[in-house]
């Protein structure tokens, strides 16, 4: 019943870091879980000239592939977050892995990852990421995930 994988979407924001800590703690409580730290690189839609070399097609729509800088930044972000989670996990049985995803929609990528291989993860995420308005209690990505995901979702807030 308790999902064996805890999925933590992160963008390095304070809210995401609070979620990372919570995930580490829950994984410790649950014993032998895997914590999967993911970051999604948002892809932007490509209009007009598709003869450029860095075009990615998703569901028949063209997108600009991420740049090397973006990719390296994301890799570093995930590596840092994974290290933070590892440092906070008390149990040696907990496996911490990192993954970088690329998608036009971060929320959809998070949900697909959570539902991957027919399993259902527990998603633990911050209420609001880097983007958006501070006064919003729930950011757009968290909102979409909480509405759309079939698996349990935990939203963690930060006091700031």
């Amino acid at each position: 019943m308790i999902p064996q994988t805890i999925l933590v979407p992160t963008d390095g924001s304070p809210g995401a870091q609070a979620a990372e800590s919570m995930a580490a703690e829950l994984a410790g409580v649950m014993g032998s879980a895997t914590v999967k730290v993911v970051h999604v690189i948002p892809m932007s839609c490509l209009y007009g000239d598709v003869s450029l070399e860095n075009v990615v097609q998703v569901k028949q729509v063209n997108y600009v592939a991420c740049t090397l800088d973006q990719r390296m930044g994301a890799d570093k972000l995930v590596a840092d977050a994974t290290a933070r989670v590892k440092a906070q996990v008390e149990s040696a049985k907990v496996n911490v892995v990192g993954k970088v995803l690329e998608s036009p929609s971060p929320a959809e990528a998070i949900m697909e990852e959570a539902h991957a291989d027919g399993t259902c993860s527990l998603i633990v995420m911050g209420s609001r990421g880097m983007g958006g308005f501070r006064r919003l209690a729930l950011g757009s990505v968290s909102n979409s995930v909480v509405h759309g995901a079939h698996c349990p979702v935990m939203i963690v807030k930060t006091d700031e």
């Binding site: 909480v146 759309g148 079939h150 935990m154 807030k157």
Partner: peptide, 22 residues
């Protein structure tokens, strides 16, 4: 509705972590 009004309001108002189960 994926999320009912009570769950939605709790999610917005609470300061502690909220776990929503489908």
């Amino acid at each position: 509705l994926a999320l009912g009004s009570v769950s939605s309001q709790v999610l917005h108002a609470a300061r502690c972590p909220v776990l929503i189960i489908k």
